[in-house]
Design a protein around this nucleic acid. Sequence first.
DNA 1: ATGATAGTGAACGATTGCGTTTACTAACTA
DNA 2: TAGTTAGTAAACGCAATCGTTCACTATCAT
Lengths: 226, 226
Amino acid sequence: MSEKFSPPVDEQPPEAAAKTPHPGGRPRDPEKHQAILQAARKIFFTKGVAASAIEEIAQHAGVSKVTIYNRFGDKPTLFEAVVKEQTDSMSEMLIGKKAEGADLKTRLNGFGEALLAFLFHPDHVSMERILAQDLAEHPGLADRFFAVGPGQCRDRLSHVLSEAAQRGELTLDDPRDGAEDLLSLWKGFADLEFRLSVRSPPDKAEIAERVALGTEKFLRLCEKAD
Amino acid sequence: MSEKFSPPVDEQPPEAAAKTPHPGGRPRDPEKHQAILQAARKIFFTKGVAASAIEEIAQHAGVSKVTIYNRFGDKPTLFEAVVKEQTDSMSEMLIGKKAEGADLKTRLNGFGEALLAFLFHPDHVSMERILAQDLAEHPGLADRFFAVGPGQCRDRLSHVLSEAAQRGELTLDDPRDGAEDLLSLWKGFADLEFRLSVRSPPDKAEIAERVALGTEKFLRLCEKAD
DNA sequence: ATGATAGTGAACGATTGCGTTTACTAACTA
DNA sequence: TAGTTAGTAAACGCAATCGTTCACTATCAT
């Protein structure tokens, strides 16, 4: 695997795109880019990186194998592009859900439901599986992924709790530990079951129920923690 | 991968071993069997099944490649043998720790420490990583592994809690849910960090601290749950 | 000693899949 | 129309690895 987490070689900064529009010649088909990433995600996350053949991805994307190599240059680089796309969408989701609402419980539930819907999505479960393997082989990547993924997620929740504590809405020793506890209660045993393919992905209702129960337990825990 | 979870073809029932001792000919070297499994575990759990070469395992075990094929016949079968060995040792551990002790907290802590020491061991973390990938491809295996692994673990803890509830040592709606909560609090965020190779495995002291904190929170939760 | 099984080392055929090259067509600019 | 880039299809060289076979040695029971 590669040692970097960088974008594909051909990717241009959004602003530079205007400066270097079409130096002449046939323009790239933007749909192909998406098609490749989509197919790569599906294949990579299903069979694992090592077991995935570039040619299969090409075929699945309706694209020539050479096109993939021209655009991404490498198998590891293609994989990193897929991972980056996924983590970006997670960041977007976390920003989108500002955890607004009337009381604390409602706010937490909103945050938790959005988060679990993302974490328990088959695509994400698969990615975590594959990525864990990859990170074990390349320790350098682990911290970088963790920072933009689970770490960011915990910190954001921790911030929500911290604010609530300042407003006197709950008592809390350490917002960071609190966030970890809340996340653990939300995910619970189901997390393991999804990862091991014992259960099929949950629907909205099941997620809402999990989150509600978890939030309730967490708040009960805080009341007694003063 | 293979579709079954059965022992290697050559394995004999323990009793039959006396009946069919040595029909003549050179006896098998029992040390080689262990050496192969040990090497296979190391290689499989480090690089993944697909990326592991039988020849490397053979070399690492100080054994000829043909010997492996003669004994296990197949790569998937070898992998299954390794997994079986691991789950067996987990069952042993769970039976060994009967969760005995003076008060409930001590008993739970004893159980939790033994369990986490096993779950957070690098070998087990690696196996769960690799296995998750394999189970995703072969759903039939998932339930069978879950039953002898995490499922058994949860049920055993659930039983401990249930008994305690009957003795009036704690109040509990559903021992099964309680067990899941307690497990979640014990594992916490650290579980994810180990799986993603962000943190190195914990020592006894760290485990004991995690477990103590988790147990405390859980018991606090139960007191308020009546 | 004889026959049988276990084990080794080396070579083999077959397959797979990476990444490249070649020759060709398609789309766009000047 | 000429020049340039994007894309395709097919074939190639190359390395890895599976699972097998062969010839040979080692270790046991009778």
